[in-house]
């Protein structure tokens, strides 16, 4: 069942067309990844779903209700983790949780219990009494997430929740997302780290320059680019005629030299490695090292846009 359906959504800022008519859906109980480089329009898209921005055109249907016309339909059921930390720095962690919990209608014992549970989940229980401005970056990030969990939302939207933090906090956050999902929460997870999206998401939308350029599970996306992956070679006693010969192979997309290494882009083909090794032996060159990189979303993005996800 689709919890959320986005159709032909558009949004422009004064000069920039940030979102150019995108369409996607989120199924109940899944973790949907929104992957894209800086400025792709991820935050803009999410802000429209979260009712913070009004779309210029298009529809956002949540549980059958158009939330552009009726924002209330999503507001109570949504946990929104903004990209920038949005907390009261002068208040303690607990005071922040109290305020946001009440803002979502929690009271008394329920609120108290939820604060305990959530601070356990995000792992800041021992620092609850301290002012947020004394927290480390990672702790602020985790509290930023915790605030959105208090009211047990049906859908949680996280906008790059791991930006600029240490690996430990990052792993903690990723584990938390999986745990929440297992408990039945639907998640939209935005990031420009492909590893995170690969690790978490059952389905991924790749966004670039305001458009969704590909969509599917990791495997589907990789299949889309014909399984292109990098074969890294280090050879001795070879010349360019060998490279030309390799490049001529039907399953080799391209070949290039970069400081001593030879990188060949190859398609999914069970024979290809053997063929290349044969050609090298025929030529009389020797293999110093050889490494096949697993195809990943980075490669997908590169293939689709000619650019890297991150520069």
């Amino acid at each position: 069942m689709n919890l959320l359906t986005v159709t032909n959504l558009e949004k422009s800022y004064k000069k920039i067309k940030a979102v150019k008519g995108i369409t996607f859906h989120v199924k109940q109980g899944e973790v949907l990844g929104l992957l894209g480089p800086n400025g792709a329009g991820k935050s803009t898209t999410i802000s429209m779903i979260a009712t913070l921005l009004k779309p210029d055109a298009g529809e956002v249907i949540y549980n059958g209700t158009d939330i552009v016309k009726n924002p209330k339909a999503i507001q109570e059921n949504l946990g929104y983790v903004p990209q920038e930390i949005a907390l009261y720095p002068m208040l303690s962690g607990k005071e922040n949780l109290m305020f946001w919990g009440r803002a979502y209608g929690l009271k008394g014992n329920t609120l108290k219990k939820r604060i305990e549970e959530v601070s356990e989940i995000i792992g800041i229980a021992d620092r609850l009494k301290d002012k947020v401005k004394t927290y480390s970056g990672g702790m602020k990030r985790r509290l930023n997430i915790g605030v959105a969990l208090l009211h047990n939302p049906e859908l949680i939207i996280m906008d790059e929740p791991t930006v600029g933090i240490d690996p430990q906090s990052r792993n903690h956050i990723l584990d938390t997302v999986l745990k929440l999902n297992k408990q039945g929460m639907t998640v939209i997870y935005t990031s420009h780290y492909m590893e995170e999206v690969e690790f978490l998401c059952s389905r991924i939308c790749i966004m670039d320059q305001g458009e969704i350029i590909a969509e599917g599970s990791k495997e589907e996306l990789i299949k889309q680019i014909d399984g292109a992956r990098d074969l890294k070679l280090r050879l001795e006693n070879y010349d360019d005629t060998l490279l030309a010969k390799i490049e001529a192979h039907p399953s080799v997309v391209s070949i290039e030299k970069s400081d001593g290494d030879i990188i060949a882009k190859i398609k999914q083909d069970t024979q290809i490695i053997k063929d290349i090794v044969d050609m090298i032996n025929e030529h009389g060159a020797s293999i110093m090292s050889m490494d096949v990189e697993e195809p990943n979303l980075e490669a997908v993005f590169l293939q689709l846009t000619g650019r890297m996800l991150r520069d």
Binding site: T51, L52, K72, Q75, P82, A86, Y88, W100, Y104, V147
Partner: peptide, 16 residues
């Protein structure tokens, strides 16, 4: 201050 700390926007997203 609330706008600068983005908590105003965050409140807007909620049911108030």
């Amino acid at each position: 201050d609330e706008k600068q700390n983005r908590v105003w926007a965050r409140q807007l997203v909620g049911p108030i």
